[in-house]
């Protein structure tokens, strides 16, 4: 039972990260209709930034998070103004833009490999403290911190989308571009906001996951797939459903790799993605986000 609870705590922490990836994915998808395959590499960029700032430059965690946000913002602007907007202006078909996200991810990975080398680097835990025991279950402090930070972030995003005029306008941009434009919403600027928000959420997810699984140029894909799975399983709609689905996937992964087989645990996540896609009702794909 103790083992089970400990696994559950780690599963929830990891799953919250998947939820963040799902959230990042959904923000761009709903604003522009684009399926962003660079999601995993953006997470990797966050993790690698955290590694460099924390382990090589010896900065404190608050500064590290700030650095990750700055790098994320830069990457978002590069992608939006260097690739996405020029393609939209040229009337490129969506499938080309999807391929562009793949190529952008490839460039990020390759750049990281060139910069630091293709290995997995360890990253110090956020709180080096000893595990704390609650009701006989000892828990890693950082699992709790990671979960808390992830959910606070999601809370902030939810607040942004429901309680601020910019957030509501951004939803309007995603739901009905004409409606937003005739109401005076700066459509192009808000799409940039969506890119920035998405990349920041994803990269912070990378910085959070780095102490658990390390940081390395090729870390992105496996996590991204679970994030995609969470997004699809959550019905491609709301902020919190994607998080809940992410936590579910994290739990399934942790428990199945312990009780069934660690070798086949990834297959379970991939199968969840596949089945969720196949069973996803057509209605979900076409309608927009609710929150």
């Amino acid at each position: 039972m103790t083992t089970f609870l400990q696994l559950a705590v780690s599963g929830i922490a990891l799953g919250s990260i998947y939820g963040l990836v799902a959230l990042g994915f959904l923000v761009i998808y709903h604003a522009t209709g684009l399926v962003n395959f660079a999601q995993g590499q953006l997470l990797m960029a966050g993790a690698m930034t955290a590694y460099v700032l924390l382990m090589q430059l010896d900065l404190g965690y608050p500064l590290v998070l700030l650095g990750v946000v700055v790098v994320a913002l830069l990457l978002a602007l590069v992608f939006r103004y260097g690739i996405h907007r020029p393609m939209v202006r040229r009337g490129a078909p969506t499938e080309n833009m999807v391929v562009a996200t793949i190529a952008f991810g490839l460039v990020l990975t390759a750049a990281a490999e060139l910069g630091i080398g293709n290995t997995r680097y360890g990253v110090d835990p956020i709180f080096p403290g000893a595990p704390i025991a609650i009701g006989g279950v000892s828990m890693q402090t950082q699992s709790i911190v990671i979960t808390a930070v992830a959910w606070v972030l999601v809370g902030l995003v939810w607040f942004f989308f429901t309680k601020t005029l910019t957030g509501v306008s951004l939803r309007a941009v995603g739901l009905n571009r004409t409606a937003a434009a005739v109401s005076g919403v700066r459509v192009s600027r808000l799409i940039t906001v969506a890119f920035a928000l998405s990349v920041i959420v994803t990269a912070v997810g990378g910085a959070l996951v780095a102490p658990i699984i390390g940081a390395g140029p090729s870390m992105g894909l496996a996590i991204a797939v679970k994030g995609f799975a969470a997004a699809v399983l959550g019905g491609m709609s709301s902020v919190y459903r994607g998080m809940v689905a992410g936590v579910a996937i994290g739990l399934i992964e942790m428990l199945s790799s312990y009780y069934i087989s660690s070798a086949y645990a990834p297959v379970i996540a991939y199968t969840i993605l596949f089945l969720a896609l196949v069973l996803m009702p057509a209605r979900v794909r076409k309608s927009g986000a609710t929150a």
Binding site: A172, L175, A179, A180, V182, S183, V185, S287, T290
Partner: peptide
């Protein structure tokens, strides 16, 4: 051209942007 899944109040809120 409304945002169908948003509430009436939210649709009106978007109108206050100008």
């Amino acid at each position: 051209e409304l945002c169908a899944s948003m509430t009436v109040a939210e649709n009106l809120a978007v109108g206050t942007v100008p």
